[in-house]
Design a protein around this nucleic acid. Structure first.
Lengths: 137, 137
DNA sequence: CTCAATGCAAAGTATTTGCAACCGA
DNA sequence: TCGGTTGCAAATACTTTGCATTGAG
């Protein structure tokens, strides 16, 4: 479903130059499971663990750029970190705050919301639905 | 619908001592419109503007305490600030990121979500639904 | 009186910015 | 080569903590 070439194409299609750094990041975003949830620190750790090297600031900047280009999506979470999702469509999330983990509500059961009427002069660009989890017992 | 005495009672009911600081904050939270959305900085500015004085750190701490006690609720927003809502029930929000404004989706039309099945060992404690707004044109 | 509550400053994180060095097209 | 990119350090938030002082019960 994913291929080595995909990040390259995605970058080019979005008008980005294909650079070492963007490939390293794009690789981790798009060559894994279909939907991947990342925060900057974890991605940085990940990259370092694999022996590659990208500065933390650059990861912040690159993910911000990717988001602006619509390649990834920022998720609304009550957390001290920014979370991104590689799935840019509207879908629901579970959030386990105690472990700072975020994952999709499984099943294709994410029926599209019946959107409310936006205030005058505005339009709705995306919807975040977040279910907060707590460990039982 | 709201009265001067309400903050006092709310505090006591939640087991808090009734102090000057908590009254100042509680006053602003519960003596206004039914649902009020605040971020710490704005509340601080507000309090200062009225001639009263509560330190920023204390506002942070107090709101955190109030949230733990269930008096207010933290909202999931993709923002660089913490947002609280005086309405602790599950309801939907509009978020205008360009102005950092947050408000309720009007109408009682906030049909309860059909909750998904939580992962084993977890239960769902609350639901945040956020509609991102963008100015048209 | 006593211990919780507060103010303040300092510490801790998370995120962004400025700019020189670098590199893809 | 040229202008977009990156790394790094420093700057900026935002939020929490530590501790001496205050004040509610």
């Amino acid at each position: 479903m994913t291929s080595e070439a995909e990040p390259r194409e995605k970058l080019r299609a979005a008008g980005f130059r294909v650079t070492r750094t963007r490939l390293i990041i794009g690789h981790r975003l798009w060559n894994g499971p279909d939907s991947r949830h990342v925060d900057v620190a974890a991605l940085h750790t990940d990259i370092q663990a694999s022996g590659e090297k990208v500065s933390l600031a650059t990861i912040y900047n690159t993910l911000r750029d990717f988001e602006r280009a619509g390649l990834i999506r920022r998720i609304a979470v009550a957390s001290d970190r920014i979370w991104y999702d590689t799935d840019t469509g509207n879908h629901h999330h579970f959030h386990d705050m105690s472990e700072n983990r975020l994952f999709d509500v499984p099943g294709a059961s994410c029926e599209p919301h019946s959107l409310p009427e936006p205030p005058d002069g505005y339009r709705i660009t995306k919807v975040d639905t977040l279910f907060h989890l707590e460990k039982v017992r």
